[in-house]
Nucleic acid binder design. Structure first.
Lengths: 292, 292
DNA sequence: GCTTTGTCTTTTATCGGCAATAGACAGATC
DNA sequence: GATCTGTCTATTGCCGATAAAAGACAAAGC
């Protein structure tokens, strides 16, 4: 079966959405840039648009024939990349299912369960191993170390070191640095969500990641920024599978963020450290509660 | 060609060395434990020992027939695992060769150059990516970020944060913790090398890793301990390919270590921080000098 | 003269297959 | 009764092959 064509399918869907809004399509290279794919894929998309009768396409002449229907899109399951599929499937197993620490992980079994080849599973496990949740015994199986209390404590310990340093670096950014504008934008979304907390509290997860990543980036240190991936994935799945008191928790975190943001703006190192510490402490507590 | 049999070859060599010393061999499971391989491999080794006329083997009766010769061993090139081979080859390219930052890395080319399959190269690159020297463009090539000044500064920034914290944790270890004994042993080796510095200064590299890893382990944090891999690999190849003033540099580092070790023993946090900072600063400077 | 398109080549992502290695289990041996 | 050996099965590590996707280059169009 070789490579999946999910890049094509995903880009196709985004192209149909584009076509739904504006009534014409730009040149091939421009469209490629807009969709983030190569011209080869753009041409495959255009060919298919013609096939399903959405478009006439001859050289530069692209004429939209009708409004797209829901049935023109590829089903969303088919647009995910293999690694996303594996990640979700794997995280469900270890966070939701009864996965005991110390358990062996079997590549072949995982591959069969998801219906893919072993190579993809192996590559996923190698990439995933940097999250500290699994460990390889050479020439033998992987061992699940588990989403335990120790894991959460070790993770948050490093997170706190990194974020305190990043927040301090943030305060030293020159006034014209784009991060300040992004901070304004992020703050505005905080107010928007708080203003309609009952309905919008699930939007917090994504905003949380956006905010903390912005702070970490101020460190200008690739190791610190990369480590944020670990935090992000843990909190991502944590939010997804543990919804007890979600509204209340998120509201509290939003308020803490606002204090934190104000502290960053003040550029006062004592205030920043205080706000940062306070927020990270409550984030850690939330995480720990979900484990025991 | 499937799997290499380097596990067998390496274990075979170690078994021959064992046989050179003691005149008999233990049971299969015991031998497996001693060599760190499965019984399947042990039996393959015993079969080969018989074939080359080093041993008679029938059930429990194992009789050594003669002293091993140099020609009984497999050549060392054949005992390295594929990932070790790729790693060396790759590091030589990016540290020694003219590898410009921003350069593209081609999986197929690398594989052909080393004479192996692409899967192994891919897996290596994925594992290697956590060292922050390369980066993947999805569906496209890897980009070499290069062993630059920025890289060294980012690396040492994190190293210093982690090691200061680990050193502080070390001082809090209970007196009966085995780490103190290991520290004694490490200190003794320091004195031994310093006593014959002219000849033994190349032994420093390995000792350095052993010492700092011991310190990092005191953090009891998997992320801190794992990060030491990044430091270790960088310094390992750094020592290997930059030998200017090596004797002098190593002598200085050994002295700094001794002060650092004494500080750890004192359990005095001010003294520890001071000694640790001082040593890390000079380690950073050495590293930076080798870059520009 | 710059951008677009047609065509072709190169490279990546993924699969199935096979030898090396690990590991399980029952019967044999001390 | 604990450990060892014989035998068999399961799993990993690695390869080559192939479709998807990227990308190079020249000719065409504005």
């Amino acid at each position: 079966m070789a490579k999946q064509n999910n890049v094509f399918k995903d880009a196709f869907n985004r192209c149909v959405k584009l076509l739904d809004q504006s009534a014409s399509l730009p040149s091939e290279p421009e469209l490629g840039a807009a969709l983030g794919v190569s011209r080869t894929t753009v041409r495959a998309i255009l060919t298919r648009l013609e096939d399903v009768g959405l478009l006439t396409w001859e050289k530069r002449r692209k004429i939209v024939l009708r409004k797209p229907l829901a049935s023109d899109y590829f089903p969303t399951e088919e647009t995910d990349s293999l690694s996303e599929i594996i990640e979700r499937s794997f995280m469900r197993r270890i966070l939701a299912g009864g996965a005991e620490p110390g358990m062996q992980i079997n590549e072949l079994e995982l591959a069969r369960e998801i219906g893919i080849g072993t190579t993809s599973v192996r590559e996923f496990l190698i990439r995933f191993s940097r999250f500290g949740l699994i460990e390889k015994r050479p020439n033998s199986h992987w061992v699940l170390k588990g989403f335990t209390r120790e894991f959460a404590l070790e993770l948050t310990e490093v997170r706190e070191m990194f974020e305190l340093r990043s927040a301090a670096a943030f305060a030293r950014l020159p006034a014209e640095h784009p991060a300040w504008l992004e901070l304004d934008a992020i703050e505005a979304v905080h107010h928007a969500i708080l203003g309609d907390i009952e309905n919008r509290y699930p939007d917090f997860s994504e905003l949380d990641e956006r905010f903390h990543l912005l702070v970490h980036r101020a460190s200008k240190n690739r190791f610190i920024v990369d480590f944020y991936d670990v935090i992000a994935i843990v909190f991502h799945y944590h939010y997804q599978w543990n919804k007890t008191n979600a509204r209340q928790r998120n509201a509290r975190a939003l308020e803490e963020h606002l204090v934190y943001i104000a502290a960053l703006r003040s550029r006062d190192s004592v205030q920043i450290e205080d706000a940062c510490r306070r927020h990270l402490k409550s984030a850690r507590e939330t995480l720990l509660q979900s484990i025991n």
